[in-house]
Design a protein around this nucleic acid. Structure first.
Lengths: 133, 133
DNA sequence: CTGGACTCTCACATCGGCGTGAGAGTCAAC
DNA sequence: GTTGACTCTCACGCCGATGTGAGAGTCCAG
């Protein structure tokens, strides 16, 4: 199939598909005209790429992990254990990032807690300190 | 105090301090020479800015929230209720972002779960599929 | 008065995953 | 053969906080 159809199948923009190729994540064949020719499995690969991207992995990391995965009909499945350390590292990263966000939220909560004590809005003071226009 | 000292006090780079000013978050006085002159409270303000930045707020949002806060000796404390909706919105955003990360982690876990079944590393297949060098 | 540390103002570079055009070639239906 | 949809390859723009460097002025201790 050509790039437009793969785009429709996967929801990835044409630009994104070319970008994934540029990053070494896809390797479509080329017609004599130069047109990219994709295989059926590439749809699964693209879905896998997008899943991992959404998980916060960089294309570089995905490139290290992807060669160890195979088309599982619908989705991408792992084909060997070599990628496990990478994925575990990413798992760690995700946990840590989420923890950071929650910690930040707690700090916001702390601020909000102090604020509720003076709920009666007192904008006068704000004006006094407000930055220049 | 001058910018270098404030930088040392807060851990923010000199560049960042100038950037915060450019964004309207700080308003140091100026000496005749053009040197910025900061007040003691500015240290607390900068710490507040960095806390909110680390929480994922943009300088723009911080700019809306900051005028409603006052120096609390060490840290920044809210001075009026007008900022509450903004902070609640950001709280929501943080919760959602954290949830996204955890969901992504779950998907990674799903992949890892499939992988552990074939733990005996089988790199041969990897070579076959691996992208070009 | 001199030198070294400090500060000033531009202003360009970075990172990453795309959006968005320009200009040109290709494909397929009529 | 013509048209319109599709595709190709550059290549710059973006966002946001910050790094980095140039060239020039300022401060203060010796």
């Amino acid at each position: 199939m050509r790039i437009g159809e793969l785009s429709r199948l996967t929801g990835a923009s044409v630009r994104s598909l070319r970008y994934y190729e540029e990053q070494g994540l896809l390797r479509p064949l080329r017609r004599p005209s130069g047109y990219r020719e994709y295989r059926e499995e590439d749809a699964a690969t693209v879905r896998g790429i997008r899943l991992l991207l959404a998980a916060g992995l960089s294309t570089t990391t995905i490139g290290e992990v992807l060669p160890c995965m195979v088309d599982d009909g619908e989705m991408l499945a792992p084909a060997c254990g070599g990628m496990i350390p990478d994925l575990l590292r990413e798992r760690e990263r995700l946990s840590a990032a989420a923890a950071d966000l929650l910690a930040a939220r707690d700090r916001l909560d702390a601020i909000l807690a102090t604020t509720s004590a003076l709920d009666p809005v007192d904008p006068s003071e704000c004006e006094a300190i407000a930055p220049a226009t």
